[in-house]
Amino acid sequence: MSTRAPARHARRRISEEKTAQRRLALWLCAPAALIMLLVTGWPILYAVLLSLQRYDLRFPDERAWVGLSNYAAVLTDPFWWNAFWVTVVITVISVAIELVLGMLLALAMYRTLIGRGVIRTLVLIPYGIVTVVAAYGWRYAWTPGTGWLAGALPPGSAPLTEKIPGVAIIILAEVWKTTPFMALLLMAGLALVPDDLLKAASMDGATAWQRFWQVTLPLMRPAILVALLFRTLDAFRIFDNIYVLTGGAADTGSVSLLAYRNLIGGLNLGIGSTMSVLIFLTVAAISVLFIRAFGISAPGTQGERR
């Protein structure tokens, strides 16, 4: 009883201190936040402004505000929707494969007792190779006449010039390249699983399979979701692999490639920026979906979430 009043007092003092600290923190954060706003906020705003104009670099005199008509042009265009669905297919399939392979690799890396360093290094090699360099490797490998992989195909087939084989090769290159990244994030998640819990489960008679499904996976959930979110966002913005492998031929282009074609090739800043904004909105929607639907916390705030 007698301790209650001083305790309340103490609590108030702590909260005052906390407020002061919080204010200081805000001040300390301000410069960084301001710079972030300038270097990311302004380009985004500028892209939005451009997307509301008819603005072709070749016809500077015809520059004019056109409202949402660029959005209407893009959203009713079959080329855009083809690129959109190609991007969605590449994203969904490659991320799904990466999750399974990444989990296997993470388990292997986490559980190996001998040569751990060597294995981890080996696994990370594809991720360390510059994407464009790796993509050229794949491209030549699949080119009839020069490639070691193309030689295994029936003569006369040129997989990179057809839609479905082309997309499949893009997915393969993407999976090969980024599975190590997935594995790395998942391995960090594996470290969150206490060994005692697994031992206890095993004492209770759980099989290895049951331990994985009912103990390891649920505890890894935050890590898995963060890995999935990162990879989904990355995969949706795919550009370099496609640019090198097929150049978007045979309708294998992604939305980013289409935006590039219109911006840089077509010099059409209006339509190109409209596509950039639409890609941005889609990526934002994916993030919101992940955070709302799966309730993941932003990286760095794990555990603080209430």
Partner: peptide, 14 residues
Amino acid sequence: DLIGDALSSKGVLP
């Protein structure tokens, strides 16, 4: 249809 759009640099380039 499409060349008409292209001439006025309107529409999307594939």
